[in-house]
Amino acid sequence: MKEIRLHGLGGLGTVKAGEIIVYASVMEGNYGNSFPFFGFEREGAPVVSYVRLGDEPIRPKNQVYKPNCVIVLEPAVMNAVDVYQGLKPDSVLVLNTTHTDIDKFDIPPTVKTVALVDATKIAMETLGRPITNTTILASFAKATGWVDCKYLKDRISQLFGEKNVDAFDKGYELTKVIEIH
């Protein structure tokens, strides 16, 4: 079972991003669950969402404490929240950032893979709004390979339309994946 924690701000689609990952897993014939910590909308406030993926039905409905992957949808969240908390050995970190290398970050030794993308810039250029969830889902897919891009894009198209699929494609192309040895 893979466990994922998403950090964002209310209004960025943090919760929806988790649901889209689960959708992709389920459409491939696997399982998943996802739920937000706050559970209701609070625009601008830090939001956390949890995802579990697996090839068998997933029983725990708990919060995720030791994630295999952390996704950060908005750089400012990192000033307010310890997004690295509990990251497991060989874990994956997906960051929305203007930086293109990892020297600027105090990345914990348990992280093996880091994906960097300027999702806010891509979202502004593609959507005209700094809503980063569809862009950063591409970075997640590129860095982990845990779900099929086809199903992510299907759901994004159903929910948000084709411009967001463009944001996804651009996000995939511009995401820099760094393996830490």
């Binding site: 689960v22 998943g32 669950n33 739920f35 559970g39 409905k61």
Partner: peptide, 12 residues
Amino acid sequence: YDGFYLSHMSER
């Protein structure tokens, strides 16, 4: 059913 843990949890 439990609020949030199920009401706002998405699954298959």
